[in-house]
Amino acid sequence: MQRIGMVIGVKLEKIEEYKRLHAAVWPDVLAMISGCNIKNYSIFLKEPENLLFSFFEYHGTDYAGDMAKMAADPKTQEWWAVCMPCQAPLETRKEGEWWASMEEVFFHA
């Protein structure tokens, strides 16, 4: 199992819309998340900095393959098209990233 943490900005004028969207995530999107071996997925909001922090556990054996499967899913693409205008990617993210990946520096079970 891998623990994954990522961060992205959220536009101030889009915070309420982002909260509303995530209060009722589409069932097909949730099914795809589960089908790609992701469990315990959370997104946290930090105001007034307007940062979103996501955390999830990956329980599969081919993370890149599962992420490609998710990215190819038409319903997930539709969901992303609705959510992405709310987000403000960090300028310091790595090439090819939308959400910036984070290094885990501490874990206690």
Rank of each mutant, 00 (worst) to 15 (best):
A68K: 13
K39L: 14
L21S: 02
A31Y: 01
A81T: 00
E95G: 02
A31R: 11
P74M: 06
E91V: 07
H108Y: 15
I38K: 08
P74E: 07
Y41T: 15
M70W: 01
Y58V: 03
E57S: 06
C83S: 09
R3N: 08
N40T: 05
D62L: 05
P74H: 09
M67A: 11
T92A: 06
R93K: 09
I15D: 07
I38R: 06
W80D: 10
K94R: 15
A72V: 01
D28T: 13
W80H: 10
F55Q: 09
E16M: 02
P85K: 07
F44W: 11
F107K: 14
E97F: 09
P74W: 01
L45W: 00
K69A: 00
W26K: 03
E78T: 04
S54V: 02
Y41R: 12
K19W: 09
K69L: 04
K69H: 00
H108V: 11
H22A: 11
Q87R: 15
E49H: 04
A24Y: 01
L45P: 04
A81L: 00
M70G: 07
W79D: 03
M84C: 07
D66E: 03
A24V: 08
V105E: 06
E97M: 01
N50T: 05
I8E: 06
K11M: 11
G9L: 05
S42Q: 11
L21H: 03
W26D: 11
F55K: 15
P74A: 04
L51A: 06
G96W: 14
G5W: 00
A64K: 09
N50V: 07
G9W: 12
A72T: 01
A64V: 08
E104A: 10
E78C: 04
A88H: 08
K69P: 03
T92C: 04
I43H: 14
L51D: 08
M102D: 11
H22R: 11
V25N: 01
L12Q: 11
A88P: 02
P48K: 07
P27V: 10
M1H: 15
A109R: 04
N50M: 05
K94D: 12
W79Y: 12
F53N: 15
I33K: 00
P74S: 13
G96N: 10
W99S: 02
E104I: 13
T76S: 06
N37T: 10
T76Y: 05
P48L: 05
E104N: 14
E47T: 15
M67V: 02
A109G: 14
V105C: 06
A81W: 03
P74C: 08
